[in-house]
Write a protein that binds this DNA or RNA. Structure first.
Lengths: 395, 395
DNA sequence: AGACATTTGGACGAGAGGAACACAAACCCG
DNA sequence: CGGGTTTGTGTTCCTCTCGTCCAAATGTCT
């Protein structure tokens, strides 16, 4: 409500906003009849007709025959987003894998690849080259190379939104590495490219196509080795001044706690990261994916030791989340990434901690649920981010 | 960028947006020449002329003669906001005082009163009646009663934005008290009324007229007995789903800490509230304003005991703030309320803790400074909030 | 099967709003 | 006092949506 609209509107602004509204609806909700567009956008039939006509001319959508639904009246023609009318490239540098996908307008995933990343640190050049290879594979599978309108890159680490400078990525051993530059070189395209943290991307995907659809205020906690957060405030991703927001893994929760790989001590992720779980379950903290799998299997078969380790993780999850909920007063908290499988085992201690620590007013309004898009959420979110300029200004 | 504009624009929307832009500039930056409005809004001279003409007709602004500034060319006529063209009523329920003010369009404070509140709990009816009395005093001082366009109420407590239901106000001993209803009864007006927490209001005031002018991402920490937070994200106040956001006083920072009056333990405010300071300085925690004054006087005269108590407060301030900064990646952190006087004494330990605990990328971008509007910030913010509908839609 | 109600597509004119342009007015400077 | 510059004023033009009228396509009722 309290706004900062860019100034100086004119009739052209109106056109752009209305076109944007139509394109957004089509991208987010798939094929819609013209009359549905009328009710969703609040525009008149005349306006919808003219604007969709323009989109058909731009080959972004196609108008099909009426869909008969048994209601009286002339059937309304169906406006379908054309997946090949605009294509984005989504890339992901995850904690132990790389991924690439092409996604078409409307949200259809056209091609997707994920490859394992060898453990240990890799140089920026190696990663960039590997990503470029994946990119050319998924793009090569498209009929005409695709009308590429944007590239989105999700990174496990702290990355500057504007230019892809990676400030810190502990999993990769990176510090101040110019990922954006390198990637631009090897990709060799001039297509606008946006970078963001994997959790930021994941929550965007969940907002558009997952469990957070329609919610305005959402927190997503993405567990990998550390913990990341993606925040939606008032329907928009919270980025902060440089895109460094959502680093919830490093909120102090235990002033006398363990040292964190960020240099501080007692960060949230020292208590809820995989290392803490493995330590509590009696495994070496660096055990990796296999060790985590082992703990979860033990828990699934009822091992009290594993269950109590997970319960303790849940307790700390609740402590950190309580702070976040008190700060943000969200409608929804999603747990994603590696937290997904642990969810059943952390749930009760987590909720108990929320009951204790969240202010009553906020507590009543918030629900904590698992995310729905699985491991590819950051990749899908990267695609959504890459679509953003098109959705904002389809002309 | 990733937006949720209300849909269905038309030419009327353009007009409203442009009118709103002009009114916003005038309200926020005082008298401006027409040519300044042209450059600030990006509109043409013709458009500015027509739109300001309309505002003059509505008696919201007046056009004065040119201001000669020594530059060549015909001088541009000055557009002045008329403080009596639109007036709001601001009310505040602070921790130990009540206040009321009338503020005119453009931000001029027309009348302002503050009265002490007797310690201990007061009923909602008592407070509402006292506020209504203050309100009629400040309104009575206006020439024609004023063209009242809105009422804003700042409350020390957790209050629902929509209807002024106070979920919790420990200082007043309130829990689920219908302040909004009572106030509407005793005020007897149908003017739209908005409620918010005092810290939310304070940061809005600082954003418009104080130290945060022009900043897009701001955290304000407001110290009273407890600690409140006002958050600005992307130029807009962060409210959450019901206006309960910014309750930073209750983020868990010390899992083995002291019980908090919210029912949890180890909340931030148990470490940085006035109670903690008094305890550390060797005073009874319930000492109130006088005891705090005593501690500060001791510190000002160099007492090591008082200084170390304040330094410890600074350390805990830094710990909590570090989490907030990692979450929000702000440009600016303001310290206000009772923290203002302690600022010189908490500064160094606070900054040291930030250096340790905030991620390097975010740390470089953020500055921590004292707020500038003093004790009346929440009251001024309440006025700004009350002006908001007018600024959004001046028609 | 046919008449009627209902809903939508298509086309055209109306209205609203700002941009662009031309001209006059008011200031500075030499 | 005349030229350069900037701004106010008025007019025309362009863009965009809305409203309305009519035709088309479907369901429903008799």
């Amino acid at each position: 409500m309290i706004g900062r609209d860019e100034l100086g509107h004119r009739s052209e602004t109106v056109r752009r906003a209305n076109l944007s509204a139509i394109v957004r609806e089509l991208h987010g909700s798939g094929p819609l009849s013209r009359s549905e567009l009328v009710t969703r956008t609040g525009l008149t039939r005349s306006a919808i007709r003219a604007l969709t006509g323009e989109l058909v001319g731009g080959e972004l959508v196609s108008e099909g025959p009426a869909a008969l639904d048994g209601t009286p009246g002339r059937p309304s023609s169906l406006v379908c987003p054309d997946p090949h009318g605009a294509v984005v490239l989504a890339l992901e540098i995850a904690v132990d894998s790389l991924a690439a996908a092409t996604v078409g307008f409307g949200g259809e995933v056209l091609e997707i690849i994920r490859v394992d990343l060898p453990p240990g640190r890799s140089s920026v050049d190696d990663i960039a080259t590997a990503l470029a290879e994946l990119a050319s594979t998924v793009r090569g599978a498209l009929p005409n190379g695709g009308a590429l309108v944007g590239i989105g890159v999700a990174v496990v680490g702290i990355v500057r939104r504007s230019d892809g400078m990676v400030s810190m990525a502990p999993n990769l051993g990176w510090r101040d590495e110019p990922l954006g530059e390198r990637l631009a070189e090897v990709l060799g395209t001039t297509v606008p490219t946006t970078f963001a943290n994997e959790a930021d991307m994941a929550v965007l995907a969940e907002l558009r196509r997952g469990a957070a659809r329609g919610a305005d205020d959402v927190i997503l906690i993405w567990g990998s080795i550390g913990v990341g957060g993606g925040l939606i405030v008032d329907g928009r991703p919270l980025t902060g001044v440089a895109g460094y927001s959502g680093e919830v893994g490093h909120i102090p929760v235990n002033p006398d706690g363990l040292p964190c790989r960020c240099g501080s001590i007692g960060c949230w992720e020292t208590e809820v990261g995989t290392g803490a779980l493995l330590r509590r379950a009696g495994y070496p903290p660096e055990g990796g994916r296999e060790a985590i799998d082992a703990v979860l299997r033990e828990a699934e078969s009822g091992s009290p030791h594993a269950l109590s380790a997970l319960a303790e993780t849940g307790r700390w999850l609740g402590i950190g989340l309580a702070g976040l909920i008190n700060i943000l007063n969200p409608r929804l908290v999603l747990l994603g990434g590696r937290l997904l499988r642990s969810y059943p085992f952390v749930r009760s201690t987590l909720e108990a901690e929320l009951d204790r620590r969240v202010l009553r007013a906020s507590r009543h309004l918030v629900r904590v649920v698992p995310a729905t898009l699985g491991i590819d959420a950051p990749l899908l979110g990267a695609a959504e981010l890459a679509f953003e300029p098109l959705l904002t200004d389809p002309a």
